[in-house]
Design a binder for these strands. Structure first.
Lengths: 208, 208, 208, 208
DNA sequence: GATGAATGAGAGTTCATTCAT
DNA sequence: TATGAATGAACTCTCATTCAT
């Protein structure tokens, strides 16, 4: 009775929560149906199988994050601007969508090959569409910065790993440290504090 | 007719691989049995249930990592020494035991509360045993360094989050960046390169 | 917006194909709808249920075959004429409508009781309508032929079983023998060859 | 508790009944389990899937019928002996195992290609094993009989179709004629009567 | 009449766990 | 201790059928 679009979205949203909480095998179609307030059979009507639903969810997550990452690269920023903006962007988006972090981390743990091929696909599609090859351009940018003497880390791999770990992945570490140091930081405060700390660390640590 | 000890170990080792690869729900008792080369029923004889087996595996992982972490704290290092040693220690141990990273990350994603209570337990036990309360002492150390003007990050939470993200969690990011930048780093090289990059970043970024 | 009649026919025709190919349980309403190029719900609008649709299809098949069988009996043929005409009639009709053979055979296998009661019904209807009781008359005919010394098989049951097996049921044996003897007979040739062989066998074997 | 062999047999036997009664799609794993007095999961433990169970049942049926058919051919009988023995053999075996008739007929209706490839396989296996190619030899025999002037039907295909239809397939026609002629023949009587009628018909109709 | 979305009752299959030996 | 057979609960998926428009 509701529009096809809406039902589709409700299923996807429920599935994101479910998969990011329990992982693929732990996720239950019943729970997704209940959460989406539809009959269980509808999920299969819309998405054919659990596996396919999972893939759609994953690609949904990536296609929401991807374009914004590319914007920054396209703008040809200086190293300083890049570090500021990238850190801020990652921290904000993942602080507000913890499910994204979980989904991506789960994939990285359980099937890294899947992400590999998925990203390749997305890049090739986008490259065909827009003629712009993000990753290659990013690598060039970093190499240029290093040659110009703007940064101290010359290896693009380590450079980006530092960025990604401190922003995206640090969200996984939060509960760990809350347990270790026995106190918790409310999410509102955390976002701003985290941005400050990461930007400061990255700029002092990697800019010359 | 192998010794009790040995069978026990074979099960635990197979279980570690299985759980770290597939997560709790995705793990299969059959596969663990096959890998451990014993009858499935024996796993229940030794560990009574899947859940219990999982808990033993997790606590096994932690109890291998924990004491070494505490050693460093006990030695009352300067900030500089701490950053150097911590980074090196984390990178080395997790680079050589990728299953540990996966297990810990899976727990952080799917049941952070579990880690919280588990760590609390371990700390209390150790505190009773040795009279030494690691986490509390670590917090103090960091606060002291800040007061002395040795470091620029005064929040112990952010300070440690930076350390942990760059070392432990960065291993999750490796496959992601291999896909993104389209090249892969062999594990041997990776360990040394990573230590250098992390130590450099942490020292330049957080020491005054 | 096709005429009611036409839609009805399209459904019946699709259903015949489907049921004769997959049997009652194996048949899928979706496939029938697709084949008939209408919406699945329409089948229920026209035929209320799968079971009812099946019954209509079955009775459709019988009511196409039945009257022609009766004509022959009514004409009070000699044994020789009967054998010639019956064999030819059966072979031709079932050679051209393999679905009929399949439907009837499936019914005979899976629910012989159904055919029993169905035939009874049809006979009673026809008897009331026309005053002519086909099966009873047929039995009489055969008994008469035997008494007259025209045929060597005195049991009407065996007599008719021979006729029916060699004509109708032999179509089921065709693929079996194609597999067994490793060669296949094209349908065009088969019809004429089969008639000749059956008529010859029946006449030589049962006429005196 | 019971021996593996026995359970296996109980499942196969229950499955034969179920499949021959309801067809593949209509068959229910629950019913098979109940009939075999075991837990439903055991069927999958022994046979992996419904489809595989079906295939095993089918091949079981064939491999029970096949060797006996070959014996007769091997004995190099005269046409007369062949017709007598073949008819008797077929009628007896299928009169006592109505499930066999049903299984074979169902396959012939719903997936004749399956039988084709299955028979080919069985022939090739047996040919390798024993060096004896049954079907080829049978064809030769019939051709010889015709050349010698012993039989009137020169086409091996029609010859065998007559034999098979009158014996094997006639069991399908039984309920049909019971309905048509409104009386039923008890199985005990039927077997002997049928043999007599078929042998008589075949010999008078096809021998010269 | 006609459509696409929705539903409920099962069906096949999986899997942790237990039993008999 | 050790094993293979057995079990029950739960899970994914299917399908005839109905509803709202």
């Amino acid at each position: 009775m509701k529009s096809k679009q809406e039902t589709n979205q409700r299923i996807l949203s429920a599935a994101l929560t479910e998969f990011s909480t329990y992982g693929f095998s732990g996720a239950r179609m019943d729970r997704i149906a209940k959460e989406a307030k539809i009959n269980k059979a509808m999920i299969f009507y819309y998405f054919s199988s659990k596996e396919n639903l999972y893939e759609v969810v994953i690609s949904d997550v990536f296609s929401r994050v991807y374009p914004q990452m590319m914007e920054l690269i396209k703008s040809e920023p200086t190293a300083e601007v890049f570090l500021e903006k990238a850190a801020e962007f990652y921290v904000r988006i993942f602080s507000r969508s913890p499910e994204f972090v979980k989904m991506i981390a789960l994939e990285l743990i359980q099937d890294p090959g899947n992400i590999t091929s998925f990203l390749k696909e997305i890049f090739e599609d986008k490259a065909k569409e827009t003629g712009f090859v993000g990753p290659a351009r990013l690598k060039q940018l970093i190499e240029n910065w290093y040659e110009e003497g703007a940064i101290s880390e010359g290896d693009p791999f380590q450079f980006m790993l530092n960025v990604v770990s401190l922003s995206l992945l640090s969200f996984l570490g939060k509960p760990f440290l809350e347990a270790l140091l026995q106190y918790s930081v409310p999410p509102e405060d955390f976002e701003e504090k985290r941005i400050k700390s990461v930007v400061n660390l990255l700029k002092r640590g990697m800019l010359k």
